[in-house]
Design a protein around this nucleic acid. Structure first.
Lengths: 350, 350
DNA sequence: AAATGTTGTGCAATCGTTTTCGCAAAGTAT
DNA sequence: ATACTTTGCGAAAACGATTGCACAACATTT
């Protein structure tokens, strides 16, 4: 039987209210009783019951995180860990805990999320699911639950989110290739219905345009974020009558696939083809040639999301706000100037 | 203001007790009132308050997961995700939620873990931290909290754990190399103070012994689970007057490092050196040559840990028990018979 | 017909806190 | 010395459920 506040009260010869007040550091408590009570708490090993406290305060001091852990994301799941670390680090400082629900299918996620909120097991949630699930979002909104979505802007609605500026990131990456002198730049993009894919494609197109280059439909291949799609897409690009000399790939995993087909065809990177990826996964620096990739600052994405949520949860009536987290192009070895087809790799593999 | 049980009671024209009983599916409730109450619940969008319920039932229906997410594990963190998925899938079926605490330093983990339990925010915990922290374990034990440790046997103490049979796994991997005809087999192992390292080293030694081969101290290098240590260790092995023809590496990440030094020295894998790793990380099949590695069944590790914990939590007085999860050696391309030093890789890199 | 058992429900206590209100004692201003 | 204000603390009412006990109403046995 764990000690309750009453036990402490008895031991310290005060009322439970007083004990409660010393816990809350209420200034109306005298130094004397304060010490007396603290001492009693120590001696009894007292820890306030979170549920009892939550019941009266109407707060669970817990926030929920809903995040996809689907197998297809297995490789890019530094996202997962980094986001969790980021979120965890800030909410812990606020005395909150993290309830994690890994979502397999959308329907389940929706039920679980609403249920947890309505049961008051969590005070708010952060959502990170690339798939658009507007039903959940609008329900959260109409029911007035605190939430922030991470990694996906939801245009139009005034909700809280944090995201990278994918348009800008893709723009900069493309610009980097352009400045290297490339004129034929292709893009291997993600699923067309994902906002992140659309944004990255948009940034790519904008960069081409700013530099007076035409956008060619056959240079843009969209498909799933998988290694095999990367392979396929690269094969397709190589089969064009005028293959590109550089390609922007919307995900490192796809980029690895693309690199693989280049290598099996004995084409050199970056000699014959420059590649830039997205996500800066741990493998990027690891593979040979090391992949130039745009770093998304996922940890930061997590911390900012959490900070935002804390604000909303702690002072309701907070206005919707958005934060965009900067990205960095991490330059490694996979890009060079065009027209050096003869180069072969020195340190060729891992 | 969310509806409470009283609101439902009023609407259904019954007492709160009755509503509670229909929620609990108490058989003493008539079909009639059952429907009446259900209807009222639907109409009001009623969801029982988890904290109120938890308060009286003395259960939070939540379990805590304490797991290291240190940066050094970034690459091998499929562990993280897989374990979470496994645990989540079983506890969700039992109506539990998962409270995740990612631990950065040991001291903090201990405080947090005990605090969560004493506050009754969680009904039990699963611990997965490679570092031995016996203080926490013994406290958990003396305070009688339900817990299971995953990925680490704690010899001597009768506590609940699930783990791989690392001795056997290493034995089998070594045996595989032996059967391939290798006589000089080295091992690159993890930190010496980790049980997992000790076990894997032991299995390696046992296999050598069974096949009548001597154990040579200079063939066993221990160090951190990092890529750079893998590189170093391999350099050292290559510098021996009689270098090994095969090496068992206690972690894929280290194995990748080892492979890298081989490649920069233009040694072929498996022509000049066979390599087998541990963990079967997603990269293993991805790298060239694809790495033969022992798969730990982490998802299964997670589900079994969770099942065990559910048993303990639901029926206390449960006896301590242990489960060992089988491993599989996943054979890919990084091993061959010795003495084919001239071979070069066909598809050499990624 | 009386005694007994079964069904279906409500009352009230309880879980362990926080918090409003009230009130004495002590301090300060008039 | 009187009238306020401040300080320090306790009593009791929440918070929203569950559950043991009581007790009708009805059914079944003897």
């Amino acid at each position: 039987m764990a000690a309750t506040i009453k036990d402490v009260a008895k031991k310290a010869e005060v009322s439970p209210s007083t004990v409660s007040r010393v816990i809350a550091n209420n200034p109306r408590i005298s130094q004397d009783t304060h010490e007396k009570v603290r001492k009693a708490m120590k001696e009894l090993g007292y820890h306030p019951n979170a549920m009892a406290r939550g019941l009266v305060k109407q707060k669970s001091q817990t926030i929920g995180l809903f995040i996809s852990t689907s197998a297809e994301l297995a490789l890019s799941n530094p996202f997962f860990v980094e986001a969790i670390r980021g979120i965890g680090s800030v909410i812990q400082k606020h005395g909150y805990s993290l309830l994690l629900h890994s979502i397999e299918d959308e329907k389940d996620a929706e039920r679980a999320c609403l249920s947890l909120l309505r049961q008051k097991k969590v005070d708010g949630v952060v959502l990170s699911t690339s798939r658009v699930n507007d039903k959940l979002i609008s329900k959260l909104q109409t029911e007035g639950y605190p939430f922030v979505v991470i990694g996906r802007p939801v245009p139009g609605l005034s909700i809280n989110w944090v995201n990278n500026d994918n348009i800008k990131a893709a723009y900069e990456a493309t610009e980097y290739l352009l400045k290297l002198g490339h004129q034929q730049i292709a893009m291997i993009s993600g699923p067309e219905d994902l906002v992140v894919s659309m944004d990255r494609a948009k940034g790519y197109k904008m960069a081409l345009q700013s530099y007076g280059l035409p956008f060619r439909q056959e240079y843009l291949k969209s498909g799933p974020f998988t290694q095999v799609f990367g392979q396929e897409a690269m094969k397709h690009l190589l089969s064009l009558e005028q293959p590109p000399t550089a390609v922007l790939v919307a995900d490192d995993l796809m980029a690895f696939g693309a690199m693989e087909t280049l290598k099996t065809r004995n084409l050199s990177i970056p000699g014959d083809m420059s590649i830039v990826g997205f996500n800066d996964s741990p493998l990027a620096s690891f593979i040979h040639p090391a992949l130039t990739s745009v770093n998304l600052n996922i940890y930061e994405l997590g911390t900012q999301a959490a900070k935002l949520l804390m604000e909303i949860v702690e002072k309701p009536g907070h206005n919707a706000s958005q934060r965009v987290i900067p990205t960095q192009l991490i330059i490694r070895e996979s890009c060079g100037s065009p027209g050096k087809g003869g180069d072969t790799l020195k340190a060729s593999c891992v």
